[in-house]
Design a protein around this nucleic acid. Sequence first.
DNA 1: GCCAATGGTAAGCACGAGCATACGATATGC
DNA 2: GCATATCGTATGCTCGTGCTTACCATTGGC
Lengths: 151, 151
Amino acid sequence: MPEQPDGRRDDLAAMLGPLVQVLVAAEQPVLAEHDLSMWGYAVLCGLGDEPVRTQAALAQAIGADKTRIIGVLDTLQERGLIEREPDPADRRARLLRLTGEGRRLRDDVQRSIQQGEQRWLGRLPADERAVFLRALARLSRLAREDLDRSR
Amino acid sequence: MPEQPDGRRDDLAAMLGPLVQVLVAAEQPVLAEHDLSMWGYAVLCGLGDEPVRTQAALAQAIGADKTRIIGVLDTLQERGLIEREPDPADRRARLLRLTGEGRRLRDDVQRSIQQGEQRWLGRLPADERAVFLRALARLSRLAREDLDRSR
DNA sequence: GCCAATGGTAAGCACGAGCATACGATATGC
DNA sequence: GCATATCGTATGCTCGTGCTTACCATTGGC
């Protein structure tokens, strides 16, 4: 910084755009190798240790359109990666869980993806990298909260 | 870090996604206020002090589709924000320049946008912020180089 | 008990991006 | 001189996204 001859710096979005692009591109072969779609993987990541109650809530949590992830959930369920069962307390809703297999697959894929990230993170000095990741995690969390608030 | 109960962290793309989303959303009203499209602004930002030779080169530099920015360039030219003239050395090609007005508008918009960024950057400690921006600028540059190489 | 809201589902519509094709004018290499 | 490549232009096609609508079953509030 600054990046421009006249002292200006690029907007955050302008800087983040290309970075997201290369990262997403790097994920494709990993996902393909495991026969996962991007949204399929996002669903697996969006399910943690506790079941998620309602598909709509999961869709929101991962930034997906609830009407578009139905097929994704169907596929994941068919593959035994998730379980989807009616909530006994409210029969309109489904409880969504990772199966053991789903968790293993998610963790495998994530390991591979984050290994690929070293290509980029490895270009930062170690102390800078730690700060960058910490700052990014914080900003990302804040952004998510903002998005949740506006929905 | 780590962000997950089980020690995992989110993928970079997963963290960057929501952040890009809120940043882009914050840009919309600024762009609208100046009657600029996102690609229009990207063109203004992609033109620096020196003319850019060929529309295709500009399109590539800003990550746009050369066939899709023609209308954008038409509009910007009509508004007197850019100049577009045949390259005397090669009449197939155009030289693209910012006008003074285009530069002023670009700088105004960028000032507003970067002011809006304080909402996020201001949530980081000052030393972390500087490191974050420096790291991001570097990663962004590396990503751009990678994208250029693959085109 | 009735009505409005909710959850999952299916599908429609509009839009933009990515990519491709084709054309005329021009430039380059052999 | 000819074949190929390049530039700007126009347009088509496909796909994904965001949003909407509608439906049925269920729930919650009055």
